[in-house]
Design a protein around this nucleic acid. Structure first.
Lengths: 115, 115
DNA sequence: TCGAGATACCTTGACAGGCGAGGTATCTCA
DNA sequence: TGAGATACCTCGCCTGTCAAGGTATCTCGA
């Protein structure tokens, strides 16, 4: 995995919200989906994932409930709230800004030498 | 300032290296330059800046020396090393990947509803 | 002349997010 | 029977950031 987590840090919640925007889901599936979407380049660690779920629920961005699986392991489902949707939109806009800013700040002249 | 530091986290060293690629410089100037380049949208905190300098020097990405200012406050100058230049190139490439990855992961369908 | 503000450096301690490591329980299939 | 997948969770550490504090010099206006 080439992507270091410090570059993703700060995006975890946005990534989760974006996934939940497509419909309610549960932890394990969110994680697998991120892994698949990234084509194996990135995988959230479980501790990170559940920590983010907790924060998002505490701030009212998502709500959760236990599924009623008749068989298999129990699942805790998460659903994005209106507040979460606003949060997602805000974060997405902020990401656009940050992207441009970082592009500006890390620009340097290829082939330039200063000796 | 709209840009939260968690989105910049992980880029601080790259930003500094990119600045030093253009020629040796000192802390205060690096900081002002970042502020100016970002048009006031982002400013490194001093503690962050000097912490990053220390790490970069410890890992051999930059070297430092005291200037011989005849007047005014003393300045510690920093210069990027060959290792630092490689590091900068690597980080820049990684940023390109991370950018695409994040764009992929935070994508969601505008106007989509799931109730 | 005195003080504010700019220039320029530095450190300490706290905080927050990410993660390694560990745990629990169920189901499937060889 | 036991490995591997599914599915959840927590504890404690690590690391980068930052608020707050400090030092010292120079400039400029009141």
């Amino acid at each position: 995995m080439a992507i270091t987590s410090d570059l993703i840090r700060g995006h975890t919640e946005t990534i989760i919200l974006a996934h939940l925007y497509g419909g309610e889901s549960y932890g394990y599936e969110v994680n697998k989906s991120i892994f698949d979407k990234s084509e194996g380049r990135y995988e959230l660690k479980e501790a990170t994932l559940y920590g983010a779920f907790r924060r998002l629920e505490e701030t009212g961005c998502i709500s959760s409930f236990w599924g009623d699986e008749a068989t298999g392991a129990r699942r805790r489902y998460y659903r994005i709230t209106d507040k979460g949707k606003r949060h997602l939109r805000d974060n997405t806009a902020e990401w656009g800004d940050a992207k441009n800013l970082i592009d500006t700040l890390i620009k340097y002249e290829e082939g330039q030498t200063n000796e």
